[in-house]
Each structure stands twice: as C-alpha cells, then as structure tokens.
Design a protein around this nucleic acid. Structure first.
Lengths: 107, 107
DNA sequence: TTCATTGGTAAGTCGTAGCTTACCGTTCGT
DNA sequence: ACGAACGGTAAGCTACGACTTACCAATGAA
C-alpha cells in the first residue's frame, strides 16, 4: 500500500479499456484469455494493461495451472477512494466559506 | 450530474497536470492566471485543462470581473467516489467467496 | 473612447500511450 | 519426451493528447 504512488492508480484508471478490465474483475476474478474474449482487443494488449494495473496496485494475480487469474485489490481501490474523499471534503470546505474574493495576493 | 458520463471524470483525472489543478482548487478557488503561476505550464494550457475538467463536471467557473474563478464541484467528485465505492464493495465480495474456479464457461 | 488586463480559441509540433504481430518460456496432458 | 494451451515480452506502427505561440473577445479603469 505504501509502496504505490497514488498517482499511478489515477493514470491506470485514465484509460477506458483498463476501466473495462476493472469492471470485469469487479464482477469476479478472471484469467487473461477470458478478459481478452470479453474485450475488443488482443490478448497481449490485455496483458500490458494488466501489468499497468498491477504496478498501480489495483489488481493482483494468482497462478492457476497454465492460467493466471487476476482479481481486484481492494486495498488499492480503497487508496484512491480515500484520496478522492479528501478532495471532496476540502471542496465542501471552500464551498460555504468563499463567496467573495476581492483582494489579490499578487506581487 | 446526470448530464456527465462518469468515464469523462476518470479520463480527466488521468492526467497528472489536471490532478495538480484539482489539488490546487481543493485548497481554494482560483483564477486561471493564478493556476498558471503555480504550475509549470502556460496559461492557455491551463485553460484547456480546465475545459476538460469542466466538461467532466469536476469544476465550476464563475465570472469575477475580467477574471474567471474556478472551483471544485463537489457533486462531480462525489460521483467518482461512489463509483469507486461500488468497485471496492464488489471486490470485497469476490474476495471471500472465490477460492477455486475450476469450471470454464467457454463455448 | 482608449488602453490594459484577463482568458478562451486556433493552428501546429512533438512525445508517448495503446495496439498489433511475432516470438519465447512455462505448465499440463498423453 | 512431445505437443498443445496459456500468457508475458519485443519490436514497430499509428493516433491522440498535451503543450506552445499567436490572435481575438470581453471587461474594467483612465
């Protein structure tokens, strides 16, 4: 958890295909070939996306015979959720307070 | 809220510079030129990023004289947070349940 | 009205992310 | 041991996104 840069997670979810993969894995764990069948891209492409997601700490993989089963990593997802939560609270803070901002702090 | 595709929000936050802008705006509302001073990019670049963020429903703008003050839109942030929450819950669901997946549903 | 300030838009360049095909390693079945 | 299935990696191509400079519109002050 502390190993991953949270920025990596956002970059990972910035791609529509990777979001689709995450949605598939949210349903249930899947093998690489399985994901490739569900998506309109080749299997190597799926592998590359999974690598990005894994580096970001959003998914985990498990060897099962010749297959490799991927599943969501709740901790990684939670990390992003927490950061988003922070933004949300700060936004609400500045919301009620700032109605007028006539003075500039320039120079 | 219903107007925006949630995917737009993820795409918007997929860029590091836009995440930096969001962080700045989470602190407090800012004008375009203000953001440009804080960031290592030109003012037009900031404008383009703000357009993306606005289309995604993550920020709102308000005219203040010749300036244009941008601030976070809590609703947009909350939308992403909810979606992330859904993924998180589903991930936990499949976590305890799936230990073995011997059968394939292929063909 | 005229000038200065602020910000959005247009046009163009450059880097990189995502995709493909081809190839190789690994694991299981016969 | 041999062959098939599955998946990761390499190399290369293409497209799109982020940034720049230049220009224009709008607002406020003199």
């Amino acid at each position: 958890m502390g190993t991953y840069q949270t920025g990596e997670g956002w970059d990972a979810l910035g791609d529509p295909t990777r979001r689709a993969i995450v949605e598939c894995l949210a349903e249930r764990p899947r093998a690489v070939g399985e994901l490739a069948e569900l998506l309109p891209i080749s299997r190597p492409a799926v592998s590359q996306h999974l690598k990005v997601l894994k580096d970001a700490g959003l998914v985990e993989d498990r060897a099962a015979g010749t297959r490799r089963v991927y599943r969501l990593n709740p901790a990684g997802v939670a990390a992003l959720r927490d950061q988003l939560d922070t933004f949300w609270r700060r936004a609400l803070d500045g919301f009620q307070d700032v109605v007028e901002e006539p003075n500039e702090e320039k120079s």
